[in-house]
Design a protein around this nucleic acid. Structure first.
Lengths: 190, 190
DNA sequence: GTCTATAAGACGATAGAC
DNA sequence: GTCTATCGTCTTATAGAC
């Protein structure tokens, strides 16, 4: 098992990477098949409904990548404030690099398609909800109330999405750094 | 002066509206000329460099619309916490409406183009900076320190952008409402 | 399952009449 | 300044050979 991934996964990974960079409409199928090396016929064999179906799989792939990253940091760092700060600092460092290929994980696709493709909108909504569940679980297990945990998880998600947007737009990790530094304020136990 | 706007402004307004809905790559020039009623020849007369040039003008137009809205609320409400809460509540109400045409004001274009068009990226960056300047000015005039005002203005901007994204994706004003409610925590004077 | 060739239409952009 | 017709390219999608 050296380099042998199946065509389906190869396509999903290429699509996930490209959609993060330029969004749904900014990437054509031709670019995805070129990047992945999989011919167009195979794409339509695995994703008969075409681009929209591939995009939904790409969104789910990106969602799982982010879940893994969050879980890894949360298992390593017990304190919820420190853990979330570490997560955001990591993001700021990646974006600080000159030619990162991060983009907003799914924010771009979500904002392009919220009014045009209901299946894509729902896939994005589920991703946001799953991430928020992880934040919430971490907070509850650290003694925060159900209500505050839920609210803070929304705030943290919004701060990360907004922070990534500001950081990629300004080509600087600074906005995310400032956000990480202010995290303790949000997490005052009530 | 009843209904007579010049072709240039009509094009910019139509482009601004459509780009907010589906982003830069999600909207074609054909749709913009159809929506505006201005023929393609005129578009290239006013914007010789084509779509990118029109997009930059549309971004600046959207920027000014947002500036007006912020200034209006800030002049009406003196307390900075209450003012920012009012701003965000207003947003949540608009998005709660079934067929709003809000979208992320410029976040979608920014995230699509941060790696592909430097002129567009810079126009978006300037918009974010201008909005943050208004938040900062409000805070300073209410007695917050220079440092805290600057940092909070970034947080507020990130929260609004992220909150709009979560609200349009979930088709609910709830995320923005939660954000508005938690504003006081961020604005504890240090 | 894999791949090529191509269809049908939308895209951004341009030429040139008026 | 205004408008139409059109160019070449790229788009999503399909047909059909292997």
């Amino acid at each position: 098992m050296v380099d042998k991934k199946n065509s389906r996964d190869t396509l999903i990974e290429a699509a996930s990477r490209l959609f993060r960079l330029r969004g749904y409409y900014g990437v054509g199928l031709n670019e995805i098949i070129e990047e992945s090396g999989i011919p167009k016929g195979s794409l339509y064999y695995y994703f008969p409904k075409g681009k929209e179906e591939l995009a939904i799989e790409a969104i789910n792939h990106t969602k799982e990548m982010v879940i893994s990253k969050i879980q890894e940091v949360f298992e390593r760092i017990e304190d919820p404030i420190e853990a979330m700060q570490a997560l955001i600092y990591q993001l700021s460092e990646v974006i600080g690099e000159s030619d990162h290929k991060l983009g907003m994980p799914i924010g771009t696709i979500a904002s392009e398609n919220y009014s045009t493709s209901e299946p894509i909108r729902i896939a994005c909504q589920l991703a946001f909800e799953d991430w928020q569940s992880l934040y919430k679980k971490k907070l509850i297990s650290s003694g925060y109330s159900e209500k505050q945990s839920k609210e803070v998880s929304i705030i943290v998600n919004a701060l990360i999405e907004g922070g990534i947007l500001l950081s990629i737009t300004s080509k600087s990790g600074k906005p995310l750094q400032v956000i990480a530094e202010q995290m303790p304020l949000l997490l005052i136990k009530k």
